[in-house]
C-alpha cells in the first residue's frame, strides 16, 4: 500500500458524502440539464446520478441515501447500495465528492 492509498477516502455505508466547496450543481437553462461544475471540468450527470447527488448533503449516510432511493425507484436496496458505493468511490477519486 502506498502512502497515497492510505490517504484515499473509502466509500462505506456510514460515509456521509457531500459536494466539496469548489464543486456545485448548476441547472443549465440552454441544455435544460443539470451540470456538476468544478474548476477544471464539467460533468453531466444522468437522472440516477442526479438523484444521488441531490441527497449528498453531508448529513445523510450512504445507507440512508440508498434507503430513500429504494423507495423512490421501487428497487432493491442492496443493488442500489452496490452501485452507489462504487460510484461514490469513483466520484471521490475524481474529487467531485467528499466522503
Amino acid at each position: 500500500m502506498t502512502p497515497l492509498d492510505a490517504a484515499r477516502p473509502l466509500a462505506k455505508a456510514d460515509s456521509a458524502p457531500r459536494l466539496p466547496r469548489h464543486v456545485r450543481l448548476h441547472f443549465d437553462q440552454i441544455r435544460g440539464a443539470w451540470a456538476l461544475l468544478s474548476p477544471e471540468k464539467v460533468l453531466w450527470p444522468d437522472e440516477v446520478s442526479l438523484s444521488i447527488l441531490k441527497l449528498c448533503d453531508g448529513r445523510r449516510s450512504i445507507a440512508e441515501i440508498c434507503g430513500e432511493l429504494a423507495i423512490q425507484y421501487e428497487a432493491d436496496v442492496d443493488e442500489i447500495q452496490t452501485d452507489v458505493l462504487a460510484f461514490a468511490q469513483d466520484w471521490s477519486d475524481r474529487m467531485v465528492l467528499r466522503l
Binding site: 471540468k41 464539467v42 438523484s51 428497487a75 442500489i80 460510484f87
Partner: peptide
Amino acid sequence: MKKSWAKPQMCQVSAGF
C-alpha cells in the same frame, strides 16, 4: 411515470473544451 433504477453515469467534459 415510474422511474427505474440503472447504474449511475456521469459524462465528463473538460471545462476548456
